[in-house]
Structures are given as C-alpha cells and as structure tokens.
C-alpha cells in the first residue's frame, strides 16, 4: 500500500521530536496525533508538516507548543460520578484495612482528579494515612495542579458531579472563592506529591496500593497500552487496585488473568496475590 505524504511527514516529525527532546509520541493513536498536528498547521502559518518538523528541530519554543497540543489535558472533578460511588463502595473498605496507603495518579493533568480523590478520602477518614503521587509529563499542567486554582464558573459543574457521586458535604467547604477563582483547601494538598513522570519513557515510579490512570491509555496504540499496563502491574502491591477510564480495559495487555474484576463497568481491578485471590 502506498502511504500518503502526510502520514510519512507525521512519522518524521514525531521522530524529530523524540530524538531532539526525548518526548516519544511514536506509539500514540495516529488519528489523534494527525488531528492535533493538522490543527496546529492551520494555525501556525506553515504549509506542510515537513516545515513544522524543521521548525521543531530549530525552535525550542515551537516544540513546547507542540507538546501542549499533543497532551490533551481535558479533565473534571468527579468525572463519571458512578466511578466515585464504586470507589466508596468497593475500594474504600479495602484501603481501610491498611495502616498507610500509597496512591499513584498517572496522567493527573491539572489535578482535578487527584483533588476529587483527596476529598473522598478525607470524608472516608483515610486521607491522613494516605500519600498520593500525582504525575504527568506535562509540566505546565502539573504547575497548575500544584497551585490548585480553578475558574469559579467550573465549580458549578464540579459541585453537581460531586453530589451525583454520593458526596454529602457542602462542596464549597473544599475551596475558597476569590474573585472568579476557586482555591482548593490546603488540607487537601498536604499529602499530595506532584511529580513529572513520562509513562512512555520512565520506569516504575513507586510501589503503591492503588493506581488511577484514567483517559490516558485511550490515546495510546495497543502495543503502548500493553507496555504501560506492565509498568502498572509492576508498581502495584499484591491486592493493589487499578482504576482505568470507563472506556479503557486490560484487553491488550495480556495481564487480565493477573487481576480480579472488582467493578466491570467502572473498570476497577484488584491485582491477585501470588497463587490466586
């Protein structure tokens, strides 16, 4: 089959980005990458992806713009309310049996998911004994996450999500409003460690009791999904919990046998102990 020119150009551009800056998008979903690059092409005044490749190699700032384009940071607090309900129901009782809890949020974006979990754990009386590692390869998103400042107008949606997820407190107690900004409470931040980590090129981050990686793997092709799933398997303790996004699965990893399905719909899995349950 003859390849179309754009496809060849995109491969070369991703190769350039990787060799020069170490960011490896070569096994991301092609349709996603193509869409993002074509959007950028339309905006940046260049004619072809090849011209963008040259610019990437010689212009560090342009490369930084592309990194932002390729890392989709869309997120919400309490996205998928039923997922957080399921966590309260089937995961919290397990975590309560531990004297300390380590949780890894991989691909935490601007932090909303980690804060949601911090709120849930506080309400369940678990937060004080928890350390949360929240990682992403997008430094700008991480900086925003660490600050924990969001637009006030988003809080309406987050509050509705929180209530649907089974939250019974006043959601406004978890942040302070200042003009049009909502600043997350310091008590939610204190046990969260924000760190730069690239799922494609970095190795095991820490040994943890629970991993949340939601809506990140959908951007990877099946080979890369499998590779990252092995990284998760190796990072989880026996009996550890793996939470994926509602449309993600262990299908491509060959690891499904190593987990018990705690919640089929919400994609919550428990790593088996050696020799069975």
């Amino acid at each position: 089959m003859t390849k179309d020119t754009t496809e060849i150009e995109i491969h070369l551009l991703l190769e350039a980005l990787y060799r020069k800056y170490g960011y490896d998008f070569r096994q991301y979903s092609e349709a996603h990458i193509r869409r993002r690059l074509m959007n950028r092409l339309a905006l940046c005044g260049l004619q072809t992806i090849s011209e963008m490749q040259s610019r990437v190699l010689h212009d560090r700032e342009f490369a930084a713009v592309l990194l932002q384009d390729l890392s989709i940071t869309v997120t919400e607090m309490f996205r998928d309310a039923e997922f957080y309900r399921a966590i309260r129901q089937s995961v919290v009782p397990i975590l309560k049996t531990y004297s300390f809890v380590k949780i890894w949020h991989a691909g935490c974006s601007t932090g909303q998911e980690a804060y949601s979990m911090a709120i849930l754990l506080q309400e369940e009386g678990l937060y004080e004994r928890t350390t949360m590692y929240a990682t992403d390869f997008n430094q700008r998103a991480l900086d925003q996450a660490r600050e924990g400042i969001y637009a006030n107008e988003q809080m309406k949606e987050y509050t509705a999500n929180y209530q649907r997820s089974g939250g019974r407190e006043a959601f406004s107690d978890y942040y302070t409003s200042n003009y049009n900004m909502a600043i997350m409470e310091a008590s939610l931040k204190k046990n969260i460690v924000w760190a730069h980590h690239n799922l494609v090129t970095d190795s095991v981050f820490a040994e943890v009791h629970m991993i949340m990686c939601r809506n990140v793997l959908i951007y990877f092709n099946s080979d890369l999904q499998s590779k990252v799933q092995h990284l998760f398997r190796d990072s989880l303790t026996h009996g550890g919990i793996l939470c994926l996004g509602s449309k993600e699965s262990l299908r491509f990893s060959g690891l499904a046998e190593e987990y018990i399905e705690l919640d089929k719909v919400q994609k919550i899995f428990k790593k088996k102990y050696p020799g069975g349950e």
């Binding site: 979903s29 996603h32 869409r35 959908i218």
Partner: peptide, 14 residues
C-alpha cells in the same frame, strides 16, 4: 475517530 488500520479510537479532546 477512525485509525489508518481501520480500528476505532476514542478521545476526550475538547
């Protein structure tokens, strides 16, 4: 989205 190998992808892009 449709991929070149005729598989389907999902995304939560804006």
């Amino acid at each position: 989205l449709v991929e070149r190998d005729e598989t389907l992808s999902l995304s939560i892009d804006p």
